[in-house]
């Protein structure tokens, strides 16, 4: 555990809670891609299956349970409780174009050809692109609420902080996980355009326009 890893995890947690609270308080999921949220629920489910097989630390277990719980709560709010406010027409990204190639890649390139390890790899690859339906939706409608941009910023910041965590771990522990690093770089790069807009336009303008 280092400062980048911890702040990365907390940033990730903040993003998840910001989104959940935004939907709950406004009683609306307008502008939120339900498809991205389903992908994140799949990501957490397939990655944290090791909850059942190995114990790493209380911190690790608690965070995993919280992430999974919040992911499903978000999906429930979007597709059940506040379904009437869900903007399905604008959430038109074809997720099969992500899931199928990612599934194939995780079978081909992994650390170990075992079910749990392939699912872990699948979750890493899928996470790197899971935000695309959300970014697609924003580019389609041309705007996002300020709070949605804070959500995206925290989510992007989390992966950027993980990159620093991996640099730290490489230098001080000699540890590196090439699959996580490459996917993490891809994931962070996807946010670069958004980061730029967030900093140059997003602070004060509302609603946020691309």
């Amino acid at each position: 555990m280092n400062v980048f890893r911890l702040t990365g995890d907390l940033s990730h947690l903040a993003a998840i809670i910001i989104l959940l609270l935004k939907i709950w308080k406004s009683r609306s999921c307008a502008g939120i891609s339900g498809k991205s949220q389903i992908l994140f629920a799949i990501v957490f489910t397939t990655r944290y299956l090791d909850l059942l097989t190995s114990f790493i630390s209380l911190y690790n277990t608690c965070m995993k349970v919280i992430y999974i719980g919040c992911a499903y709560a978000t999906v429930y709010l979007i597709y059940a409780k506040f379904r009437a406010t869900y903007d399905g027409n604008h959430d038109s990204f074809r997720v099969e174009f992500l899931v199928v190639p990612v599934g194939g890649l995780s079978v081909l390139i992994n650390h170990d050809f075992s079910p749990l390890e392939i699912l872990w790899t699948f979750s890493i690859y899928l996470e790197s692109v899971a935000i695309l339906p959300q970014l697609f939706m924003i580019s389609k409608t041309g705007e996002a609420e300020t709070i949605t941009t804070h959500y995206l910023f925290c989510l992007g910041l989390y992966r950027a902080l993980y990159l620093f965590n991996w640099i730290w771990r490489f230098y001080f522990e000699g540890f590196f996980d090439m699959i996580a690093i490459v996917a993490g770089v891809v994931q962070t790069v996807l946010y670069c355009d958004f980061f730029y807009l967030y900093v140059t336009k997003g602070w004060f303008s509302r609603p946020y326009r691309l």
């Binding site: 790493i56 630390s57 170990d112 993980y162």
Partner: peptide
């Protein structure tokens, strides 16, 4: 020791 790869990160 763990069998296979251990993933301690989230």
């Amino acid at each position: 020791a763990d069998e296979g790869t251990s993933h301690d990160e989230l």
